[in-house]
Amino acid sequence: MSDYNNAIFRLATEAEPEDYTGEDGLLYCGKCRQPKEAYFPEGKSLFGRDRHPKECDCQRKRRETLEAADRERKHREEVERLKRKGFTDPAMREWTFENDNGKCPQMHNAHSYVERWEQIKEENHGLILWGNVGTGKSYFAGCIANALMEREVSVCMTNFALILNDLAASFKDRNEYISRLCSFPLLILDDFGMERGTEYGLEQVYNVIDSRYRCGKPLIVTTNLTLEELQNPEDTPHARIYDRLSEMCTPVRFTGENFRKATAQAKMERLKTLLNRKESL
């Protein structure tokens, strides 16, 4: 038996101070009282030995703990990679269910979207999140994105202003760029309708949405446009875009207070309190 194989057996069955040899001649764990060795089937041997290492309960628990820690480490690394790749704004990382203030009446739909993701993906269900400014549309979409990334689902959340800038900067790789957007299981386009309405811009918006439509993957769009504006476009280029969106996405209206104004008002009141507070002598 080689020194290498001897080392393997020695490490596998290395005795702790409290271990002992049982009546059957095998090494036992002094803590859990389970054998750390087992005999080969009768007449069998390996490298001249009649026994092989066996996990006792203590060793199994240590191994499972280490494996669980390793899986969690790899999971966190993958989630971090997805968020670096999928978010165009680091602030989006904070748009989570855990940070939700509970004031958005539509948030239960975001939970349901994540919980039923496999079916939603298979049936290609998209959303148009529309309503007044500051009613939580982007946060709603961000919660879905973060929750799916925590499940190691690749999501891209961006906007057409950035997309158009990227396309203009990489004219030769335009098709490759759009293909990459279509590779994500879920694409979220934030603040749709805020991009410049040039002929070139509208054509590229249509190309992105049409490509997403043809690849058969879900799309979520947030917009300050009203449903009436989406259903009654001002011209043919907008009609082509809105028709595609209507085919792909179900509209969800966002109502309620303007959270941004409420936050700004609260900050202003807090500042007034701080400025008017008399310092104690």
Results as ranks from 00 to 15, higher is better:
D57I: 00
D100F: 15
R71H: 13
C58I: 00
L26E: 06
E80R: 14
C56W: 01
C29A: 08
E55S: 02
E67S: 08
G25F: 04
E16W: 12
P17Q: 12
M107L: 07
E18S: 11
R49Q: 06
E115G: 05
R63C: 01
A38W: 04
W95K: 12
L127Q: 01
L129E: 08
D57F: 07
Y113C: 09
K74Y: 09
K31S: 06
G48T: 15
N109L: 10
E122K: 08
K103F: 11
E18N: 08
Q59T: 12
C58S: 05
G22P: 11
E115M: 13
Y28F: 14
R51G: 01
T88A: 06
Y20F: 15
H111W: 11
Q59E: 11
R60Y: 11
A38R: 15
W117D: 08
P41G: 04
Y39E: 07
D100T: 02
T65P: 00
D89F: 13
V79S: 10
R63S: 09
L82S: 10
G22T: 07
G131F: 10
R84F: 11
L27S: 10
P41H: 06
G22N: 05
G102I: 05
G131E: 06
V133G: 03
N124S: 00
A110T: 13
T21Y: 09
E72I: 04
E67G: 06
W130S: 13
D70E: 15
D100P: 01
E14I: 14
E115R: 12
R51M: 03
L127F: 10
T21F: 09
V79Y: 11
K61R: 13
V133F: 13
G48R: 11
E37C: 04
G86T: 11
R93E: 15
Y39P: 01
A69S: 14
K61H: 10
K85E: 07
E37W: 05
R49C: 03
N124V: 05
E80F: 13
D57A: 08
C56M: 04
Q59M: 12
F9P: 04
A15D: 13
T21Q: 09
R62F: 09
D89N: 13
E16D: 05
E37F: 04
A110N: 06
M107S: 05
E122N: 03
Y39H: 05
A38Q: 09
R60V: 10
H75K: 14
K61T: 04
L129T: 07
C56E: 02
E14P: 00
C29M: 04
D89W: 12
L127Y: 04
G30H: 01
V79D: 07
K83H: 08
G25H: 05
E64C: 03
E77A: 10
Y20A: 09
E18L: 12
R49V: 10
P105W: 01
H125T: 00
H125N: 00
